[in-house]
Structure formats: C-alpha cells, structure tokens
Computed example of a mutant assay.
Amino acid sequence: MEKALWYLLAGTRGGANRAKIIRLLDERPRNANQLCEELDIDYNSVRHHLDMLVDHDVVESGDQSYGRLYFLTDRFDRHREQFEEITEHV
C-alpha cells in the first residue's frame, strides 16, 4: 500500500486532488457530485481520481448505481500514517 500511495500522491500530476479526496472521504462518505462541489473540479476529473483510488484499494464504493457513495477502505486505514507522512512531503 505504501508504494501505491507514493505513486498516487507524489508520482502523478493529480496527487494533490487525490489527497484532498481522501481527506474529504475521511470526514464522511460522499458521492462524485459532492466531491466536485467541494473541490471545485469537473466531474470527469473526480471520476478519474476515484477510479485510480479504487483500483489501488484506497477507496471503495457502495452498491447503489445512482449517487454511489465512496468510502475509505480498511486497508487504507491500516496505512493512514504513511498517507500523512507522504502528504507532508508533497
């Protein structure tokens, strides 16, 4: 997970937005539209970031298709310290 977090947050251009998404989801689950409004970025960008976070097991989604909520995974919770450490360096 640590390598995935380094890649997602420091190794690509969208790392800052992905870190913001993680912080917002840490507060409470949100759907893509809510994240768009909070971050003031377009829907397609938010979906791209969410897809990357899902692919790397940082975020998981609920079962509903409309207004799907996203949550941080238990695996991410076990690596929260690494997330904080990485975001300090970025």
Score class of each variant (00 low, 15 high):
His89Phe: 13
Leu25Gln: 01
Ser61Lys: 13
Asp77Trp: 05
Ala4Cys: 03
Leu9Tyr: 01
Gln82Asn: 02
Leu69Ser: 12
Asp57Thr: 10
Leu72Cys: 09
Arg75Pro: 00
Asn31Asp: 06
Tyr7Asp: 02
Glu81Lys: 15
Gly62Tyr: 08
Met1Asn: 09
Ala4Gly: 04
Arg78Phe: 08
Ile86Thr: 08
Phe83Gln: 05
Asp74Leu: 13
Arg28Gln: 12
Lys3Phe: 14
Ile21Trp: 02
Asp55Ser: 09
Asp40Cys: 05
Pro29Gln: 09
Arg13Asn: 07
His49Met: 03
Tyr66Pro: 00
Leu24Gln: 06
Ser65Met: 04
Asp74Gly: 15
Gly62Arg: 09
Leu50Ala: 15
His56Val: 03
Leu25Gly: 00
Leu50Ser: 14
Phe71Glu: 06
Gly67Thr: 05
Glu2Arg: 15
Val58Glu: 01
Ser45Gly: 14
Val54Trp: 04
Ile21Asn: 02
Cys36Trp: 11
Leu35Asn: 05
Ala16Met: 10
Arg78Lys: 13
Glu37Thr: 04
Gly15Asn: 08
Val46Gly: 06
Met52Ile: 06
Leu53Arg: 04
Thr87His: 06
Leu24Cys: 02
Asn17Arg: 13
Glu27Asn: 11
Leu8Asp: 01
Tyr7Pro: 00
Gln82Trp: 10
Lys20Cys: 13
Glu60Asn: 14
Val54Glu: 12
Pro29Thr: 14
Val59Ser: 01
Arg13Glu: 11
Val90Asp: 11
Leu50Met: 14
Arg68Glu: 10
Ile86Gly: 03
Arg80Phe: 11
His56Gly: 02
Phe71Asn: 08
Phe83Glu: 01
Phe71Cys: 03
Leu39Val: 01
Arg30Phe: 10
Leu24Thr: 00
Asn44Tyr: 05
Arg28Leu: 03
Leu35Ala: 08
Leu9Ile: 04
Arg68Gly: 07
Leu8Lys: 01
Arg18Ile: 14
Leu35Phe: 07
Ser65Ile: 12
Tyr70Ser: 01
Gln82Leu: 02
Gln64Trp: 04
Val46Ser: 03
Lys3Trp: 09
Ile41Glu: 11
Glu60Arg: 15
Arg75Asp: 10
Glu60Gln: 14
Leu5Arg: 11
Ile41Val: 15
Met52Gln: 15
His56Ile: 00
Tyr43Trp: 04
Ser65Trp: 07
Gly14Phe: 12
Asp57Trp: 10
Arg18Val: 13
Leu35Ile: 14
Phe71Gly: 05
Glu85His: 13
Thr87Gln: 04
Val46Gln: 03
Glu81Leu: 14
Tyr70Gly: 02
Asp63Arg: 10
Arg28Thr: 09
Asp26Lys: 10
Leu35Trp: 08
Ala19Tyr: 07
Val58Tyr: 05
Leu53Cys: 12
Asp63Cys: 00
Leu72Asp: 03
Ser61Cys: 14
Gly11Met: 07
Glu37Cys: 01
Asp63Val: 03
Gly15Ser: 07
Gly15His: 07
Leu24His: 07
Thr87Tyr: 02
Asp63Ile: 09
Ala19Arg: 05
Ile86His: 04
Glu27Gly: 04
Ile21Arg: 01
Leu50Trp: 12
Ser61Glu: 12
Ala16Leu: 12
Asn17Glu: 06
Asn17Pro: 00
Gln82Ile: 06
Asp57Glu: 15
Asp40Met: 06
Gly62Ala: 11
Thr87Phe: 06
Gln82Glu: 09
